[in-house]
């Protein structure tokens, strides 16, 4: 049942990729900015949890409580940093050349990396899984770590929330309207700049959340952000830049491709992701749910 185990592992990857890519794609859809620094928010989520929880392997109720608190606090801190970044750095750049915007988010990426080295150093850190989420489930003979199930649950919950927000609430309609025609939305009385700050903050919150939950499953390092950014960007592109639903589908495709790579040709694991991307884009150049540029 090694195949099924790999399927679970692929879906866990997909869950994390979705959380990061959802923000990336929303930010592109609304603000028309490719945010290279998005991975840094994910990395900060993981580091903040490591600082709050510490690395001690304790089984006390205290440690568990601390973990839950960290899971809420870390994304909030990251989101606040995101809001500040949007307001101070990106706002002046709306409507400017794409190259300038790209350079600015690139610069942010380096600055965030530098700051993380100052705060947390270059050492690996590890976070222990809280006792309550330790252990394995056996599903159809395959093993699924409880914690991975927890990650998937969070991604599903976030996915449902995003669907509800975008389809069912006036705020969500407004976000979709801003993706399509921000000028008209403003001409109808919506403060589109404020809305964009909100979208950016939400996107960075999700990246921070993904980073916070990933901490216990792998060693936390400064490189975390760059690692996920590339895959999350591929997810956003094959889903169709701007589409959150597309990001969900794209995340599953990439997560499973990676798992298939591990299963069938471990030495070419990462090639599978790119092959999947090329196949999707060959069939649908603007991504699965993307709208072609006019």
């Amino acid at each position: 049942m090694y195949g099924l185990t790999q399927l679970f592992s692929g879906l866990t990857t997909a869950a994390l990729l979705f959380l990061v890519a959802a923000g990336l794609t929303m930010i592109f859809g609304g603000l028309r900015i490719i945010n290279v620094a998005h991975g840094s928010f994910y990395m900060y989520g993981a580091f903040i949890v490591s600082s709050l929880v510490g690395t001690a392997l304790t089984s006390s109720a205290h440690a568990t409580a601390l973990f839950w608190t960290a899971l809420i606090v870390a994304p909030l801190v990251v989101a606040a940093l995101g809001a500040l970044t949007e307001y101070l750095v990106l706002r002046p750049l709306y409507g400017r050349e794409h190259l300038l915007q790209l350079l600015a988010t690139f610069a942010l990426f380096y600055i965030f990396t530098g700051v993380s080295l100052l705060f947390w150093g270059g050492q690996y850190r590890s976070i222990s899984i809280p006792p309550m989420l330790q252990g394995h489930l056996t599903v159809l003979g395959a093993t699924l770590p409880v914690y991975n199930g927890f990650i998937m649950l969070i991604a599903v919950a976030v996915g449902l929330f995003m669907w509800w927000l975008l389809q069912r609430t006036p705020l969500g309609w407004r976000i979709r309207a801003a993706v399509e025609d921000p000028e008209m939305l403003a001409a109808m009385g919506t403060n589109v700049r404020g809305l964009f700050t909100g979208v950016f903050t939400l996107g960075t919150f999700l990246a921070g959340l993904a980073g916070a939950i990933v901490g216990p499953t792998q060693s936390v390092t400064t490189g975390l952000g760059a690692q996920i950014l590339v895959s999350a960007f591929i997810v956003a592109v094959i889903g169709g830049l701007g589409s959150v639903a597309g990001a969900a589908i794209g995340a599953i495709i990439i997560g499973l491709s990676q798992a298939a790579g591990v299963l069938w040709a471990p030495q070419f694991e990462s090639a599978f992701i790119y092959v999947a991307m090329i196949l999707v884009l060959a069939i649908r150049p603007s991504g699965l749910l993307g709208v072609p540029e006019q």
Binding site: E183, A186, A187, M188, G189, T190, N191, V192, R193
Partner: peptide, 8 residues
Amino acid sequence: QATHRIAR
């Protein structure tokens, strides 16, 4: 003024 204020 910002567009949304003009609208309002």
